[in-house]
Nucleic acid binder design. Structure first.
Lengths: 213, 213, 213, 213
DNA sequence: TATGAATGAGAATTCATTCAT
DNA sequence: GATGAATGAATTCTCATTCAT
């Protein structure tokens, strides 16, 4: 089997195992059993249990960062087109939810396991979280600067939105709770638009624009 | 030393240790060192490391549940008084944030550590989280039933609010992030009132009523 | 059992095991079996297998260094007394051989195991060997300076004597080969006096003086 | 590449690696890396790590035994020629030192590593050492029988000489300690002649004869 | 009640050897 | 012949828990 595939196979197995048992409870033994390989083979591809766990986290944030940058670009472009911003923001939210839904194990690992204070990797996790957060702050700042948000503390607002996304994902998109991701995105967007719109009188128009109805 | 005090002393020590090092990294050894007792003494008061951890979690949720019930009662009573509901809701939010701020170790343990999938206690944590969630759902349902919320999915809204609270607490009230809890409560309440108010035209009045300005 | 005794008990057991099986082949498991203690108990007293091995080596060289200093002092004092030097040198040699005979396990470990290139401790072993060697060089230099040795390269002579001592110890005093240590000392002393005496004509007198016959 | 050459190439690589890292620390991996061959190729030429190590030791002792036999023959022949014995003995010593100097890796392996108690090969090493020793004992016995040595314990004397040779080699001819091998041989021979000569009055003549001065 | 030395099950990791290509 | 990916037995070390004092 080609080295790349074998590596991915082990990554996949470990994602499943870490998600199911948690980092500490998961033994390398469990991972190799699921991957259907020998104990030593694991160490041909990864230096340690810690390393593969970090790799999964990096993988999640790599994809997430890419997505957020894409979103950022879409939003920037949307400002040039009349009435496009909110619709774009809604599409961005949909992509964020979809990303989590499509990567249930990684999502689980990042939001449940990696948060834990494990001196082995909590520093790196904080760093990556912070990077993601900064991208979101930038996005909100941009909307704020374009007068699309009422007077508010952008940092706090970002926390509110991120928290609501994470909690929504964990409660409605994980573990068989497969709510319809489009509906959830619409609800989220409506919620935050109502909360943030500068002129409440424009709410209906804004919602129509964002949700395409 | 009286048994009760000794027990609490150990609980306090373990809260600090678990919060600092995490459940898995924290050794019983660390706890007894901080508590200034012998290794065996620990086991006179608690059956196991798992048990004391669960006890801390129960302690957090016991206090939280009491608070939420109190909040619920206040809200119920508020419905009888003209223009009191939103102000009460704001007070409730303040109490929720204050509770977390006043119990930083327990907050840390519950939201960072206890989330982890550990067969030792994740079942119980889910159960307790669910109980807390149900109380919040009930509160929102009550507001909804009184026509204080627009047409929406109460479950989803509850998730959004809970997520925003947790993330705000973890990012703005933990670890030396000493934001002013009243200001945060006001921001939160304004945010969610704007998002949820049935008639957007009444927003200013609602905010004035809620925030007492 | 007092901590000091327990520690010594483990040291003794490990000396026996390391001497019998060698550092690499000896498992911590073997040591605790011989000591009659639990696996974890070992780690209450020593940080690692490497550490206890180094401790044994340090123990050997600590005793050896003390002995060599004592010898040095005796020799210095002997220069003040007519006809005492060679006799003292013979007593010193006897003490050296006796030290090795009395510490068979440590001797075995130092000369057979510790010589091996193990990056874990070979540096420290070299350092200690060098210290012992320097003391012996000093002793020979002192005799040389007092005109008790013919013109020669003191470094080379020291190597010759050390080598002969080690090989004699390993072949005649180890593993049940318990030759009489006094006889061996006499043979050694006679050998080296003959090899080193400045005036060959004085040999008989020198030997009589050294061997007390 | 012809099988014989390939085999020797691996032997050379392993000699270097074992000498540098020691038997236990050296991985088969290191050997194949140095030899520039594949992992499996190693096992086409040698059954195991143990086997190649033993092979190196056998190689050392094969050469050494050959040399000692040659020395023995020279000595036997020397007895027929007036005043030739000591000169021959000196030449023999020179060849012994030269052999070690010319085979630094094997020397290192035999005297540092192979001494270790490793059930894998220590029995064989003892056997080979004993064979070499016996040849040297025979040589000394022959000299003793021809009245060229004073009354003494030949076994002990052999130990002394072997020990001095080994220690001299390890301290003055290994690892960049590039002493002149002829000078060392002369010093050694002078030392042992002085120590062993039956009539001390003949020492000067003996030394002149041995060292050719 | 309080103690802390002792325990041993369990986990991560290494590396000599095999074998399908 | 040559290769190197795969293997798994074996080893070191940790730490929650017990129990004799």
């Amino acid at each position: 089997m080609p080295a790349g595939e074998r590596r991915q196979q082990i990554l996949d197995a470990s994602a499943e195992v870490f998600s199911r048992k948690g980092y500490r409870m998961a033994a390398v033994s469990d991972v190799v059993d699921v991957a259907g390989i020998g104990r030593g083979t694991f160490y041909l591809y990864f230096d340690s249990k810690r390393e593969i766990f970090l790799e999964l986290i990096e993988e999640f944030f790599r994809g997430y960062a890419r997505l957020l940058e894409e979103n950022h670009r879409h939003l920037e472009e949307a400002f040039d087109v009349q009435g496009k911003v909110l619709r774009t923001w809604r599409d961005n939210m949909l992509r964020v939810l979809t990303y989590h839904k499509d990567n249930p194990h990684l999502t689980d690992i990042v939001y449940r396991e990696a948060m834990g204070r494990d001196e082995d990797f909590s520093a790196r996790v904080s760093e990556l979280s912070e990077l993601a957060r900064e991208k979101l702050v930038a996005e909100f700042q941009m909307m704020y600067d374009h007068g699309m948000m009422r007077e508010c503390d952008v940092e706090v607002v970002t926390s509110i939105v991120i928290g609501s996304v994470i909690y929504l994902v964990m409660n409605h998109l994980q573990q068989g709770n497969d709510a319809d991701v489009e509906t959830l995105a619409d609800m989220m967007v409506e919620y935050h638009i109502r909360a943030l719109i500068p002129e409440v009188g424009n709410v209906d128009r804004a919602l129509r624009s964002a949700l395409g109805k």
